Simulated assay, not measured.
Amino acid sequence: MELKNRKTITISELAEILGLSDHAIRSNLWRGADMPPRIKVGRRVLFPVDGLDAWLSKKKEGIVPGVPRKRGRPRKGTA
């Protein structure tokens, strides 16, 4: 997908880039999850490409290689 000449992308195109389904993107938007900045034009949701690039780089900075993520539910009394 060529994004250099585009200013915005659709939910389907974002889903393809992130490796998610359209439904997962819509669900994350509805739940208020951390997603790239978006613009609503009528009923259509569009994502600016420059905002997507900034969001992805911010997400990439938060990843620390070699440090495993804690999984599962937190236990009582641990912080």
Rank of each mutant, 00 (worst) to 15 (best):
F47C: 01
T8R: 00
R44G: 01
A54L: 04
R31H: 15
S12H: 14
R31F: 10
I11T: 15
A24M: 04
P36M: 06
R31P: 00
L46H: 07
S12P: 09
K7F: 01
R75K: 14
K40F: 04
A54H: 04
W55F: 14
I39N: 02
I25S: 08
R71K: 12
D34E: 13
T8G: 00
R43A: 13
A79V: 09
E2K: 08
E2N: 11
K58N: 13
W30L: 12
L29R: 11
E2P: 00
R6N: 05
R73S: 11
D22A: 01
K7N: 07
R26F: 05
R71L: 15
L20W: 08
K59M: 10
D50I: 05
P74E: 03
E61S: 09
V45G: 01
R75H: 10
K76A: 08
F47H: 00
I63M: 09
I63T: 04
T78W: 01
I9W: 09
A79D: 10
I9N: 05
G19H: 06
R6A: 07
P37K: 04
I9A: 09
E13C: 04
R26A: 02
A15T: 05
K7R: 06
E16V: 04
H23V: 13
D50M: 06
R26Q: 09
A24W: 02
D34V: 12
T10Y: 01
R44Y: 07
K60A: 15
T78E: 06
I17W: 04
E16P: 00
S57Y: 05
V49T: 01
P68D: 06
I25G: 05
K4N: 12
V67L: 13
G62K: 14
K59R: 15
I9F: 11
L56H: 00
G72K: 06
R44E: 14
P68V: 07
A33W: 10
A33E: 15
R26S: 06
E13M: 06
T10N: 02
G19I: 07
V64C: 10
I39M: 07
M1K: 09
R38K: 11
G32R: 11
N28W: 13
R43P: 05
P48G: 06
K76L: 10
A15I: 02
G66M: 10
V64P: 04
G42L: 12
V41W: 08
I63E: 08
R26K: 13
P36S: 02
R43F: 08
K58Y: 07
G42R: 10
W30R: 15
I11W: 03
G42Y: 09
V49F: 05
G32K: 09
L52E: 01
L20K: 14
P74F: 06
G62P: 00
S27G: 00
P36H: 07
D50K: 11
G51C: 02
